[in-house]
Design a protein around this nucleic acid. Structure first.
Lengths: 233, 233
DNA sequence: GGCGGTCCTCACGGTTCCCTAACGCCCCGC
DNA sequence: GCGGGGCGTTAGGGAACCGTGAGGACCGCC
């Protein structure tokens, strides 16, 4: 469970970091709005604790920016008690709003409440199509569109490993776009392995074997020599 | 959008009803805890506004009772401001907690925030099926669907421990969906134990032993190596 | 105090997955 | 023709993961 803590108050920052770490959470950190948006994108947090009163970028804009592409729960911290700002923040896409000062155990309870619902449940329309297959990224299921399938089937049971899912997710989220080797590698295996192109060949081959009608003649997972791969629905 | 309003304060009740109706919400109504549970089951509300200080049945018990079979958002209203009750209510399954007196526009914003995420799978009834077994989450009972066991050996009565029920609830509420280790662990044992995968192996084994026709060859509680478990009805 | 039940710890095989290494192929430039 | 880089494919070892059993700590009940 990874939490992005976006707050410029040094003291509160430290207190929260210690408390959260003691509860077993992994804590990311941002000091201003721009950094918060950046971290929300690159750090893949499971929840965001956002202070509205940060410099550089207004807190509301941070909410809107994150909501433009992610549905990660956002819990707002603020010193303002008037209902106007609460309404604005909640309507911008925040999931909860806590006014400072707050009781730590209440904040923790609210974090638990927000993280209770499994991630991805909200992406209701997250069913992608690859030829004859229907892929549900949230449920992690793949079934044939023509009928029988799913996980317990006999013939067309398509199962993917964690790494394969990770890679497939990137392709599905950017259909038709060219994804560079470097981008794919650093996203799935971390920036440190951005040069091990062998991994990619291996796992793209796996995806093709499991998802392409004719693995030898790929129609969906295409290679652009020297550059990377492209997914065509 | 249907809201269940459970509050015994006549005045607040009327004010809320009018305001909500004016916003286009359909309003159900309950005056005490028992009625609230009943309405939550029969009225299929999309959201529950729950006053904790109602007669007959304690508000926390209402939350737990509803959560036993439904995942409808619950927004608690209360006059108590101490964090203790907030934590109890949130951990019992409430999604939000507002202390009276509150600003009406804030409450409305919180309602919007709760109802923004499409309500999960509509659990039409409290009775789930697992192969030959019928599970009633509300009554906490399990019985065979094919009548009483004719053979003298099997008792027919399946008993589960509290932890086993907790885990089973999660599975039944998300059929066909992959539930990550982390999600299951942090939900049943708390975020602090999100890494103790040993617990899961143990209790999934228990569920299989008690619920699977052939525990050695699970057909309903499936493992996806490296990710988590999936329940297939 | 004895006892049954529940929860957790620990340890041991079996399975799955990830990564490493190697080989053949195609395309391209020389 | 020839060499090289990038790509696709296959096989195998090590590590992480999973299923299972035995046993101890704790609690409520008789």
């Amino acid at each position: 469970m990874r939490i992005l803590l976006a707050d410029d108050d040094e003291q509160l920052q430290r207190a929260l970091r210690i408390t959260l770490a003691a509860r077993g959470y992994e804590v990311l950190h941002a000091r201003d709005g721009a950094e918060a948006i950046e971290q929300a994108a690159s750090g893949h947090p499971d929840l965001i604790l956002l202070d509205l009163g940060m410099p550089r970028v207004d807190g509301l804009d941070v909410i809107r920016a994150v909501r433009a592409w992610s549905s990660v729960p956002i819990l707002v911290l603020s010193g303002r008690t008037d209902s106007g700002e609460k309404v604005e923040a909640l309507d911008a896409g925040a999931d909860d709003y806590v006014t400072k000062p707050f009781a730590m155990d209440e904040l923790l309870a609210r974090i638990r409440a927000r993280s209770r619902r499994p991630a991805g449940e909200d992406d209701a329309g997250a069913v992608h199509r690859i030829g004859e297959l229907e892929v549900d990224l949230a449920a992690k299921t793949i079934r044939r569109a023509d009928g029988a399938g799913g996980t317990g089937g006999s013939t067309g049971a398509v199962r993917l490993t964690p790494t394969e899912w990770h890679l497939l997710e990137l392709f599905l989220k950017h259909p038709g776009r060219l994804l560079t080797r470097e981008m794919l590698l650093s996203e799935v295996w971390g920036p440190y392995h951005a040069n091990d192109a062998g991994y990619l060949r291996l796992y793209v081959a796996q995806l093709r074997r499991k998802l392409e009608p004719v693995p030898a003649e790929p129609r969906h997972f295409l290679n652009e020599p020297g550059m990377g791969y492209r997914f065509e629905p």
